[in-house]
C-alpha cells in the first residue's frame, strides 16, 4: 500500500498513458514522464525528497542509536558478562572439585600402600615365626633321634663285645672237643692260647 500513488505526487495514468502494457518493464526511470513534482527524475536522485529523508533518517536513526546505546547494548553486555562469569565460576568450581577428587585419590593410594607394607610386615613376621617354630621342632626331633641312635649304637657295641667274648669261649670249647676227638686229650690252656693267637 505504501507504494501506491495515493497522494497525488505522481499520477499512475500518466505512466499508463505513456507506456502501458509490457514495454514499461524495460523502461529506465529517467525516461518515464511521471506527473507531479517528481516529473522526469529518477526517484533516488530527486533532490526534492532529500530534506525529508535526511530529517527523518536523523530522527529515526538518532533514536535507534540512543535506544541501543542506553538499553539494548548494556543489557546484552550484561547477559554475556553474567554468562561468561558464570562459566568461569563453574570452571573454577569444577577445578576445585577435581583437585579434591585428586587429593582423595592420592590419600586412598597412600593408605593402600601403607596397608600393603603393613600386610607384608605381618606376613613376614608370621613366616619368620613359623619358620623358627619349625626349626625348633626339627631340632628337638633330631636331638631325640641322635639320642636314640647313640643308645642303639651303645647297645650294639655291648652286644658285639659280649658276642666277641663268647666267640673265644665257643672256639676254645669247639677246638678242645675237636682235638679230643682227634688226639684224645687236650690241654685246655694250650687250646686257649692257640685260639687267642688265631683271633
Amino acid at each position: 500500500m505504501f507504494v501506491t500513488p495515493a497522494y497525488g505526487q505522481e499520477t499512475a495514468p500518466a505512466v499508463e498513458g505513456g507506456h502501458g502494457g509490457t514495454e514499461g518493464a524495460t523502461q529506465t526511470g529517467t525516461e518515464v514522464p511521471h506527473g507531479g513534482e517528481h516529473a522526469g527524475t529518477f526517484p533516488p536522485f530527486d533532490p526534492a525528497t532529500f530534506p525529508s529523508q535526511i530529517i527523518w533518517l536523523a530522527i529515526t536513526f538518532g533514536l535507534f542509536y540512543l535506544f541501543l546505546k542506553r538499553v539494548i547494548l548494556p543489557r546484552l553486555a550484561g547477559i554475556l558478562d553474567v554468562r561468561s562469569g558464570r562459566i568461569a565460576q563453574d570452571l573454577d568450581h569444577a577445578a576445585k572439585l577435581k583437585g579434591e577428587a585428586d587429593a582423595a585419590v592420592a590419600a586412598y593410594e597412600q593408605e593402600l600402600a601403607e596397608a600393603k607394607t603393613r600386610a607384608n610386615v605381618i606376613g613376614q613376621e608370621a613366616r619368620d615365626a613359623a619358620k623358627a617354630e619349625a626349626e625348633a621342632a626339627r631340632k628337638k626331633v633330631e636331638a631325640g633321634l641322635d639320642k636314640k641312635l647313640a643308645a642303639a649304637e651303645e647297645r650294639i657295641a655291648t652286644i658285639k663285645s659280649g658276642a666277641m667274648k663268647d666267640v673265644g669261649a665257643i672256639a676254645e670249647s669247639t677246638a678242645a672237643a675237636i682235638i679230643e676227638q682227634l688226639v684224645g686229650k687236650a690241654d685246655k690252656n694250650d687250646v686257649a692260647a692257640a685260639v687267642k693267637s688265631v683271633r
Binding site: 507504494v3 501506491t4 500513488p5 495515493a6 505526487q9 517528481h38 526517484p43 533516488p44
Partner: peptide
C-alpha cells in the same frame, strides 16, 4: 522504478 518513489 515505481517502487523507489517517495510519497508523502
Amino acid at each position: 522504478i515505481h517502487q523507489f518513489h517517495i510519497n508523502p
